[in-house]
């Protein structure tokens, strides 16, 4: 065999640091990270991008990306991103937030970032549970879903209903792009990447607030194997959180990738 036959078919994106993951085996955070990194590489924007990490499992997101990063207080990433973007409007600013961070404690910040048409990109990881604190009920926990703080299953009479953020944010005039994708199989991972690329393109073109909600797994706190968890997304999350494009503004629809 000669060197000429050696072909690299898979490698770490340049925008990812050479750091061992701190996520649990089978967790889809790693997939989401990789997709973002690939998009940053393809767009050639690592050097002008600033990420805003949340509080939750992805609190250490800043360890994994080669771009500048800041670490926000719980739920405040959109406010922090606003502060950065308003001073540096020509930079690319994105937040990476989980469901507790974005849809519970940070509901005001995400809604108003959208209302202002804040020209930032939000990657929203929805795994229907609080991961970092050990599996409590999230604003996106499904009706009947058992968590450590809904041990008998989420009782909608008492604990209310899951929040559908991609749909909610689509109602805001300041939103240019709001979609939901899933990371439960290769086809959907590819679609997710395209959506992430679109969201960053929206920001690059100054077309307003952009968000990609990604249905994700939490095998550890769901008490499942990684494969079971992927199946659970498909069977249980998709009916509650339908995939789709909830807002694509006319200007965004013209973007060709």
């Amino acid at each position: 065999m000669t060197d000429a036959t050696v072909q690299v078919v898979y490698s770490r994106p340049k925008a990812l640091t050479d750091t061992p993951t701190t996520y649990c085996p089978g967790c889809t955070h790693g997939v989401a990270h990789r997709l973002i990194a690939e998009v940053l590489d393809e767009m050639g924007i690592v050097g002008k991008t600033i990420g805003v990490a949340p509080v939750g499992c992805s609190v250490f997101a800043y360890n994994f990306f080669e771009c500048d990063f800041v670490e926000a207080a719980h739920g405040r990433a959109p406010a922090m991103a606003t502060g950065i973007k308003r001073v540096l409007p020509d930079r690319i600013v994105f937040t990476y937030q989980g469901d507790g961070d974005l849809a519970s404690i940070g509901m005001a910040e995400i809604m108003h970032a959208s209302a202002r048409g804040e020209n930032i990109t939000v990657i929203f990881i929805n795994n229907a549970i609080y991961g970092m604190t050990g599996g409590q009920m999230a604003p996106t926990t499904l009706p009947g879903q058992k968590t450590t703080s809904s041990p008998l299953g989420r009782d909608v009479e008492q604990a209310g209903f899951p929040v559908r953020m991609a749909e909610v944010l689509a109602t805001m005039e300041g939103t240019g792009y709001s979609v939901r994708r899933s990371l439960h199989d290769p086809k959907n991972v590819r679609l997710a990447k395209k959506a992430i690329r679109t969201a960053f393109e929206v920001q690059k073109r100054g077309l307003g607030f952009s968000i990609v909600e990604l249905l994700s797994t939490c095998p550890t706190n769901w008490g499942m194997t990684p494969v079971e968890a992927l199946k659970w997304v498909e069977e249980h999350m998709l009916p509650v959180f339908p995939l789709g494009d909830y807002k694509v503004s006319p200007a965004v629809a013209e973007i060709k990738i």
Partner: peptide
């Protein structure tokens, strides 16, 4: 920016100060 709350205002300050 007129923020949605003082919570948001100080966190916008936090972000801007990082620059």
């Amino acid at each position: 920016v007129q923020a949605e709350s003082e919570v948001a205002a100080i966190n916008m300050v936090y972000g801007a100060a990082c620059t």
